[in-house]
Nucleic acid binder design. Structure first.
Lengths: 339, 339
DNA sequence: CGGCCGATCGGAAACGTTTACGGCACTAGG
DNA sequence: CCTAGTGCCGTAAACGTTTCCGATCGGCCG
């Protein structure tokens, strides 16, 4: 069932069928309707590879997900929401989505570029965090349109999309301040990761603005995982001027801090208030439920797609400044006195 | 940079280049090496759409993820591991992966079939659970090779892959029995879902084998989410002959049961042992950590890919019997007296 | 009435591969 | 020396589209 067969049955040429199905103007309304009707009756589906070949564009974008095998980001449920948002936004823009495979060990950097060329991909969305976004370097150098979420790399045709980590952290601190807390400590992520550094900066800025003291012992580093949060919580609770609230740059670490508090015989939120970041599934499951700064996954995905489309259509887009998506503070039991 | 250009520079015909790059036998080792070398120097990547067009196979399989928009299964972190496993297995088999978009509201059923035809997809992997796997019906009717994980639909060229839900449930009950528990209740999922029904069957079989009584009040239904687990836990704890252990068919419900126990002033695992199913991220975060039956996501993904490849290569595969993948019991604090 | 223009369509050439078929050179066997 | 066979390679025809370039046919204007 190809276009030739459809043309034969419609009594027109393949050129006319193509024009009819692609909504070109040079076809009378009558024949267009007739062809359309017949096509849907016969279940005709145009052959995309053939279209791609002659049009030299595939209407397909690639998605790079994790560069290494079994990267830790993989288990981040945050990724799933992002993936869903990206897919939805892309399908609304009539783009197809191809999941790029992790590069083999032989040619790790060029692999993605090869894939882009092989499939005529028009752009790439990158969901890996630094330093795994190195693969972006080769793509950017080849002027492939790229949109990265929480990536660090920049290039002539790459845009970056990111949550407003600083503002989110500020909102968390302000919330704790409004509850009456004056001794607010923080657990950071690995500070070489931009989101971790930005969240710390937001914490510091809010404290400065509110006139809160931030002794060095109030800032301690974790690795975003549970155990580091427990350890960091223990360190913070051992400080002489014990903090009454903790802002953790990640939910798992926040839960860890709650564990540390429980181990020390402290009650959350009475003796210690805790606010996390990311709104992972578990945040709503623990007791008390964890207050947290939620990222707008849908917003991030849509912004990435919108920026990528601009890049593809050669619209004038600003590739220097990252797109910043607002966050939302979810107040739950871990910072609600009444709970 | 096409094959013609590469042929010109190598001083051979395009046919020879094609044969050299595709490892065909009719090329001398010397010219093959020369062409290979030149190709990698020039960064030549064969045009897949053109290959697909002439070879009439795309080396690409489609992935259907959720048929409806924002289906609940989407937030299941289980899906992410599955997706990763599928992708890895496929890339090892030199297949490309295309994420199929959710069908529009106009033609929900035929959409996926259209996509398969358009892109020349050789097979489809379905990650949606019933009743959302209705889209499989059309695909199966068209003899498209399909592999579904936890799907219910069956067809001439569709294989089903599933965890050994019954055995997993049995193992959980046996574990509780070995700890000395004799009054073991269960919280089921919606029983129209095969996994929920199978887990209940496993529970019942184990109880029967071990000679444990199962009064009707010991079996109560939830919807796999947290709140239903809390409610179910309350119901079970109000039973006259109060159970000392609960097997929940899902982790969120298990956590809910733990909340209900805490509300009733009971200590887990001293007064009540709890075992869940699925090993969601939160299972390791709650306190006490939740014992659970973990599904082998990698095994499921690899089995689905292997079965699909058999289907594609027209190997004789048994489409009647589902592939059953073993589960693994993770014993954590919620059922460990020492904890 | 002649020429021009717009609307509608068909013919045919691309797009970048793979592969059937045939050709050439060389070797082996008679 | 002739023939068959083998190893290597080139020619050209496909694959299913889109689109450039004309062609035809009215209608309209001068």
């Amino acid at each position: 069932m190809n276009i030739r067969e459809l043309a034969r049955r419609s009594g027109v040429s393949t050129a006319t069928v193509s024009r009819a199905l692609n909504d070109r103007a040079e076809v009378s309304e009558a024949t267009r309707a007739r062809i359309r009707q017949l096509a849907s009756e016969l279940g005709y589906a145009p052959n995309e590879p053939a279209r791609t070949l002659v049009r030299r564009r595939s209407d397909t974008i690639g998605l790079i997900w994790d560069s290494g095998q079994e990267a830790q980001g993989l288990h981040n449920p945050f990724l799933l929401g992002l993936l869903s948002a990206v897919r939805t936004a892309l399908s609304e823009a009539d783009y197809h989505l191809m999941l790029l495979t992790a590069p083999g060990p032989d040619d790790p950097d060029a692999a993605h570029l090869q894939a882009v060329r092989r499939h005529n991909l028009e752009g790439v969305i990158v969901l890996t965090t630094p330093p795994d976004d190195r693969c972006l370097r080769v793509l950017a150098a080849s002027a492939v349109p790229c949109a990265g979420i929480d990536t660090a790399f920049t290039g002539p045709r790459t845009v970056r999309v990111s949550s407003d980590n600083a503002a989110g952290a500020e909102a968390a601190v302000e919330h704790l301040y409004a509850l009456g807390h004056r001794r607010i400590a923080t657990i950071t992520g690995p500070l070489h990761l931009p989101p971790a550094a930005e969240r710390l900066a937001g914490y510091q800025r809010a404290c400065a603005r509110l006139g809160l003291p931030v002794p060095p012992s109030y800032v301690t580093e974790g690795d975003f995982f549970l155990d580091s949060g427990v350890a960091a919580g223990r360190r913070l609770l051992a400080v002489a001027e014990r903090p009454t609230a903790i802002f953790a740059a990640g939910d798992q670490m926040a839960v860890g801090a709650m564990h540390a508090a429980a181990d020390a015989g402290l009650s959350v939120p009475r003796d210690l208030a805790v606010v996390g970041f990311d709104d992972i599934d578990a945040a709503a499951l623990v007791r008390p439920a964890l207050s947290t700064v939620a990222q707008d996954q849908r917003g991030l995905g849509e912004a990435a797609v919108a920026a990528l489309r601009g890049l593809i259509d050669a619209a004038p887009v600003d590739t220097a400044e990252p797109r910043i998506i607002p966050t939302r503070l979810l107040i739950r039991g871990s910072s609600r006195p009444g709970a």
